[in-house]
Amino acid sequence: MPTTNAPPEILTLDRLATPIGTALLVTDEQGFLRAFNWTDYEAAMRAWIARRYPKARLTDGKAPPAVRGPFEAYFQGDPRALETVPWRASGTAFQLKVWETLCTIPAGETLSYAGLAQRIGRPSAVRAVGLANGANPVAVVVPCHRVIGTNGSLTGYGGGLPRKRWLLDLEGAALKDQIAA
């Protein structure tokens, strides 16, 4: 479900209150999640949408139940709820491979950037894997937050390390370091 040839014409922006801030869910007219972010990153997300889907019209509305429902269940404590969310992403073949591989990391588990590079068959591409991970437009559904440092420490997350910690705690992942909330 990650790719499509036809760009969307209409995108719907939904706002969902969560324990760690208001989430932004952007879906297309077919009900696929196209973007996810937090309201504190809304301007950057809108700019990304304008670059990636320049002909699409962004309107306010509700995400379809197949998207919104799993997000509600996830933030209420079901760590596997997002596995059913339909998503599509626009990216390079390398990015898509990284994003698809991220989806193989089960809730409650983590993987290092080096481990992710090995899983895609490119063990020397750790930096490129990190960049692809950071470019993931449907974070949380494509669980980039499950990627940590080789030493087990938390490392970058576009939504901020306190959110990453919260997401991993929700999923029951064991971590070595502690960060201030």
Rank of each mutant, 00 (worst) to 15 (best):
T3Q: 11
T4A: 13
P8M: 00
E9R: 15
L11H: 06
T18A: 04
T18V: 10
T22C: 04
T22R: 14
T22K: 06
L25N: 03
T27L: 05
E29V: 11
G31F: 01
F32H: 14
L33K: 07
A35C: 11
A35G: 08
T39E: 09
A43C: 07
M45Q: 11
R46E: 06
R52K: 13
Y53R: 09
P54G: 13
R57N: 12
R57D: 12
A63R: 05
P64C: 04
A66W: 00
F71A: 07
E72R: 15
E72S: 14
Y74T: 08
Q76Y: 04
T84M: 06
S90C: 09
G91K: 00
T92R: 09
A93I: 00
F94Y: 11
Q95W: 03
K97T: 15
V98E: 03
E100C: 14
C103W: 15
T104F: 13
I105K: 02
P106F: 08
A107D: 10
A107Y: 06
E109P: 00
T110I: 06
T110V: 12
T110P: 00
A114L: 09
G121I: 06
R122C: 07
P123W: 03
S124V: 01
A125G: 07
G130A: 08
A132H: 01
N133M: 05
N133Q: 08
N136K: 03
P143T: 07
C144Y: 05
V147E: 02
G152H: 02
S153D: 06
L154F: 05
T155M: 03
G159D: 08
G159S: 07
G160N: 03
P162F: 03
R165G: 00
L168S: 01
D169V: 05
E171H: 12
G172P: 08
A173P: 07
A181D: 13
A181P: 12
